[in-house]
Design a protein around this nucleic acid. Sequence first.
DNA 1: CATGAATGAGCGTTCATTCAT
DNA 2: AATGAATGAACGCTCATTCAT
Lengths: 215, 215, 215, 215
Amino acid sequence: MSSTAVRPLRADAARNRALVVDAARRLFAERGLDVTLHDVAEAAGVGVGTVYRRFPDKDALLGGLVADKFETLLALADRAAALPTGREALREYLLGAMALRAGDRSLSTAVLRAAPQTAEALELRARLREVVTAVVERARAEGALREGFAADDVQVVTSMIGSIADRSRAEAPDAWRRYGLLVTDAVCPPAGGLPPLVGEPLPPPTSVDCGSPRA
Amino acid sequence: MSSTAVRPLRADAARNRALVVDAARRLFAERGLDVTLHDVAEAAGVGVGTVYRRFPDKDALLGGLVADKFETLLALADRAAALPTGREALREYLLGAMALRAGDRSLSTAVLRAAPQTAEALELRARLREVVTAVVERARAEGALREGFAADDVQVVTSMIGSIADRSRAEAPDAWRRYGLLVTDAVCPPAGGLPPLVGEPLPPPTSVDCGSPRA
Amino acid sequence: MSSTAVRPLRADAARNRALVVDAARRLFAERGLDVTLHDVAEAAGVGVGTVYRRFPDKDALLGGLVADKFETLLALADRAAALPTGREALREYLLGAMALRAGDRSLSTAVLRAAPQTAEALELRARLREVVTAVVERARAEGALREGFAADDVQVVTSMIGSIADRSRAEAPDAWRRYGLLVTDAVCPPAGGLPPLVGEPLPPPTSVDCGSPRA
Amino acid sequence: MSSTAVRPLRADAARNRALVVDAARRLFAERGLDVTLHDVAEAAGVGVGTVYRRFPDKDALLGGLVADKFETLLALADRAAALPTGREALREYLLGAMALRAGDRSLSTAVLRAAPQTAEALELRARLREVVTAVVERARAEGALREGFAADDVQVVTSMIGSIADRSRAEAPDAWRRYGLLVTDAVCPPAGGLPPLVGEPLPPPTSVDCGSPRA
DNA sequence: CATGAATGAGCGTTCATTCAT
DNA sequence: AATGAATGAACGCTCATTCAT
């Protein structure tokens, strides 16, 4: 059992690794994927070499963040699955996943091109998918689901809302909720009929439409 | 009226500008935002310097593409507005705008950061907004609109769908329609009740979610 | 005929290209192949980008120098071939090639790993080889050649002497001649019998032996 | 004698030094001078810090290898000196030294820039020189030596052949012998007259000539 | 005006060397 | 004394932008 256990990092190394990950998460969340590793290193207060010591390249760093994200989503899904009805569970998960996604730009802009093919990330993803599928099927069984909606659609609609959040994060970090609810209601309407939309429309930004601005 | 009229470009200058815009549109649509201006210049058959003479920087060039887009959208809106019911008109416009947006990667990924404060673009936008508002209000008057939905929400939901299209354009250029209809139905349900979703879910790409991949 | 003719470089471009080539030749000759292209650019008084505009990468620059070298060697071989006897011709070429090689470190240290597969260089090399083969065969016909020596051995012995020259260039730029003559005499002895070696031995440098020090 | 004796290293320190030297010799011989000190440390089973404790920098480590080499050469020279004639002895030593040199890339390519001013190395070198001088003088006395050839020329011609070996080690590790014999014959011809050259010419590598390729 | 040559900061990455543990 | 984490200058190379021709 001790053979595969990685030796724990030295105290200073662990601290620096955490600094790097924190800085990376923050910068990627704020500015998307075109932050440089020099930026990350500087924000973490370490040298570039230190970043490269922990992560073989930029994608590995991004991939590392992704694994964290999966863990958070899995915890969310487990909490949601514990709710009494499928409807509540699905709405809880959808809105929760959207909120997570809305809070972190890095995981959207382009990040995961080839990135996180780590065994860890893949396994977490598989487990997450199981839980989400169960939740979706419960909602379907209750007749609470838009006909034809599938478990794999969950990540798509989440992503969609994420792109809105990326646009408005700076001025109105919660503006995405108006659209998150619109879509959640479309997938799985609330028990008591559709309420009016919350909040205000996102004003036309600068142009007819726009994905996620960078830098 | 003559006071705002900029002096018309000389014939060859205008032709060059058009060459640049055409080339830029094509390249950005094909290859996303990381084409170099040398690529654009070469594709346009002009020197880089010529591109810079017409557009102060890369962003301005991207912005320049927007004006064209507005014209197309305006034509679409006019056609939609001619339909007999507000419901039909709004659904036509929404799905049409989504389709336009889905067909052009350049205008999504990161494009319009500061973008198109040209007088031309602003005026087109204003006119477009008027037509869309009229369409939305007709739908509202018919009771065909989700309560609280506003004209300014149109560009937001269009953009949302665009981000999905960006993700899947390469493998399944029409995959966005499944979600475009989901959202359109949420905004303005079809007359005969909700049909099942069309198509198949977009498979999870590499990760939990992802905005618009680049390059 | 004009279609394949490359358009002549603009005056400034040609001047800068020449500056780059001159600087590169000088630096490579002095310091071997580990000069950086920043060094070359600085020595040439241009920006790095300019170097990269003319030569796609470092190897291309090295390759360019190689073509020049072949031309010089070819001229030498033609001159040597015009001498009355094969013995004189071969000795002239050997000592001349050694001298050229001794004067330029760049073409030795490691340069031509993969480098000069340009059509130009290959053709020059082929022509050079023909002329050298003719010279070698004339010497063989005269009985002036060490038995078994082949035309392809010429470049090897030249290279050998070059490595000596690299060692002593700084202190005694002509010290290679002692060994160049030793080897030339071994390949093709002078008409009147072996004279004593010229010059003095290269003193043991720092160590038992040493190829070509770098930097 | 005790005054120059440095305090002996502690047993473990001495063992570590030996581990480092062994690993360095092996890696440099295999892969040339661009192995990193991390590679050396890892191969030695110690930390990089330990390497630096024993050798102030990379050059010093390379220099450290030289002392070993001198010991081997000294043993070779002693064996050669025991042969009955000066001619045999000199040829034995020359070809043996060339073979040693040909077998180890590390000691050639660039290695000994500032190298081995250790007392140990200097003393070994001095003793080696004495033995070699004696061998050379015996050959001279027998009339077996090219006129003017000096003991200090031995290391030069050895080095020369080494540079050839570096070029061909990968494909034909014994190709140097053709040239080693050519040079040995030029310095000290065999008793029965010059035989034809052995082997085949080294084919022109990629270019007219080339010292010691790296990596 | 159009051209494309020139620029140089900045990219991701490496590695000799230092120093806290 | 030994370790290996940390450092940061430097590498080859790119490309948005400027400016001489």
